[in-house]
Amino acid sequence: MNNDTTTQHVSSTDTADVKTVTAAFTNIDAQAAASIKEMVNHYLHIKNALANDNAADAATAAKALENAIGKLDKSLLTAEQKTAYDANEAELSEHAEHIAKNADNIKHQRFHFIQLSEVIYLLVKNFGAGRPLYHDHCPMARDNQGAMWLSETKEINNPYFGAQMLKCGTVEEIIH
């Protein structure tokens, strides 16, 4: 194996040069913010389950995410916030549903986690998550096309490869 391929496996948790992003909306109703935080918490549960190669736990967390999506009272959002949320709600639900219904197929779950991560990323960039999150990237996911995910910790725990390559990835941004 040459050095070009091994450098892709290096994990970086040094955040000194990492871009910091602040949520777009700052005037979010407290109840709506709590609902969005609950969705993010379930997403993080899915991420951790996939990093631990636990498809059944990921399915349980995805079902909880589906329920949390249904609980958001959109009447608490401003018109601009509602537009931003509505643009992603259907896709959020679709990918959570696929992960929930495939407790026996972690490969399928991980495929939908790629899209779920992109939608949750947009949600967090708009509404925040009640805490800082790390935008991580694995260059080897999606057949070396790369994929991102959000994490509650600086430490890389790759949900796309689990134990096979748990530390593959880098921190790209910190979202406040």
Rank of each mutant, 00 (worst) to 15 (best):
T7Q: 11
E97T: 15
N88G: 15
V10W: 05
E118V: 06
E118K: 09
L116Y: 07
N52Y: 00
K71P: 05
A34R: 11
A90K: 02
Y121D: 12
A103Y: 02
H9K: 11
Q145I: 14
Y160K: 10
A56F: 08
I99L: 02
K47G: 02
L92C: 08
T170L: 13
A56Y: 14
M165G: 14
E38K: 03
N157E: 11
V21T: 15
H95N: 13
F113S: 15
N126G: 14
N88R: 10
N126A: 08
E94M: 06
N2P: 04
A30P: 08
N27S: 15
D143Q: 04
S35A: 09
T153E: 04
D29R: 06
M140A: 11
A129M: 01
V119H: 05
K82D: 12
A147H: 09
A84P: 11
E173L: 08
N102T: 12
E38P: 10
H9R: 09
H137K: 13
A61N: 02
E172P: 10
L50A: 03
H176D: 01
L92V: 00
F161E: 06
E66N: 03
N27T: 13
K19G: 07
A51S: 11
I28W: 12
N88L: 15
T78A: 11
G130R: 07
I174C: 02
A163D: 09
A96D: 09
I175R: 02
D17I: 06
N144V: 09
A23F: 06
E89C: 03
I114N: 15
N88Q: 05
M39L: 09
L44H: 00
H135A: 13
A64P: 05
A62N: 05
D57T: 11
Q81G: 08
I99F: 02
A58K: 04
K101N: 08
D4P: 06
N27W: 08
N27C: 12
R142W: 07
I106D: 13
A129Y: 00
T60C: 13
K47R: 05
Y43P: 09
E152K: 00
A34Q: 03
E118L: 14
G128K: 01
L122R: 12
E94H: 08
L44S: 00
T5N: 03
G130Y: 05
S11C: 10
D73E: 02
L133H: 02
E94A: 15
D73S: 00
D17C: 09
G169A: 06
A49T: 10
T83C: 07
C138Q: 03
A90E: 05
F161Q: 09
K63E: 15
D53M: 04
S11G: 10
D136P: 02
Q164M: 07
Q31G: 04
T78P: 04
G162C: 14
K63N: 14
V21F: 03
N48V: 00
D86T: 11
D53T: 03
M165Y: 09
A141S: 14
I106F: 00
A100I: 09
A30H: 06
I175S: 12
N88Y: 05
L166P: 01
C138E: 15
T170F: 03
E66C: 01
A103N: 08
Q8E: 07
Q145P: 12
Q109P: 06
P132M: 03
V40C: 01
D104Y: 07
Y43K: 00
K74E: 10
D4A: 14
V171A: 01
T6H: 07
S12L: 11
R131W: 04
S117P: 08
S35V: 06
S93A: 14
K101E: 06
Q145M: 13
I69Y: 03
